[in-house]
């Protein structure tokens, strides 16, 4: 019984462990790419004053912090790859309103809130809270899937922080140095959606492979 639960809840095989590190990297990359684009999404309605960036960064931090909390909670009950995969699918779907609904959402807020500080804050909440919160759930859940023994837990957590924050750093650089010059904002957003779906596919593929390996 215990043996079987261990089978589904942790990743033993090298391939599936690498897959989890890879998606943690991509997840970190996508989060910062979306954050950087957020300034450009909000600027037409709320300007690019310092408080617009303040709103965006605050909302991203808040979303991530709650995502970490709830992702960690979720990992306590029946942890498995299926839930992990669904994070990426939900995150990808929740990015679509940023592409399609940003204008009507910001127009409504612009018309009802005079102060651009609170206008930008509420716009950031409506557009970014849900997807970034789900992306935040990925990190603690990855730790749960990778930790085999208590002694390893610190090392695993460190490795995950390393790859996801490295992804964030590269996502920030790539977006601000190159993507905004090569692509339109929404094209980069679609890139993020596709990357998140690829993460789901990668985990699905590697976990199925691993289960087959273990049951045969």
């Amino acid at each position: 019984m215990q043996q079987q639960q261990a089978l589904v809840s942790v990743s033993h095989s090298v391939a599936s462990r690498l897959a989890i590190l890879a998606v943690a990297f991509i997840n970190g990359f996508v989060i910062m790419s979306i954050e950087l684009l957020g300034g450009r999404v909000l600027a037409p309605y709320f300007g690019s004053s310092v408080h617009v960036w303040g709103s965006i960064i605050a909302v991203f931090m808040l979303s991530l912090s709650l995502g970490y909390l709830w992702g960690g909670k979720l990992s306590l009950r029946n942890p498995g790859h299926r839930t992990f995969i669904s994070f990426f699918i939900f995150a990808a779907l929740l990015c679509l309103p940023i592409i399609y609904l940003a204008d009507p959402v910001m127009r409504t807020i612009f018309l009802s809130i005079e102060d651009p500080r609170y206008g930008s804050l509420w716009s950031a909440v409506f557009l970014y809270f849900a997807p970034i919160c789900v992306m935040g759930m990925v990190s603690p859940y990855s730790v749960r899937l990778l930790v085999l023994t208590q002694e390893q837990s610190g090392g695993v957590a460190g490795m995950l922080y390393f790859v996801s924050t490295l992804g964030s750093a590269l996502g920030t650089l790539a977006t601000s140095f190159y993507f905004v010059m090569w692509f339109e904002i929404n094209q980069v957003m679609w890139g993020c959606v596709v990357a998140l779906l690829l993460c789901a596919a990668l985990i699905a593929f590697s976990s199925r492979h691993a289960i087959k390996e273990q049951t045969s």
């Binding site: 450009r40 600027a43 037409p44 140095f177 905004v180 010059m181 692509f183 339109e184 904002i185 929404n186």
Partner: peptide
């Protein structure tokens, strides 16, 4: 240059 594409500081 549009709201979707405005890399002015890079140009």
């Amino acid at each position: 240059l549009t709201d979707q594409y405005s890399p002015a500081n890079l140009l």
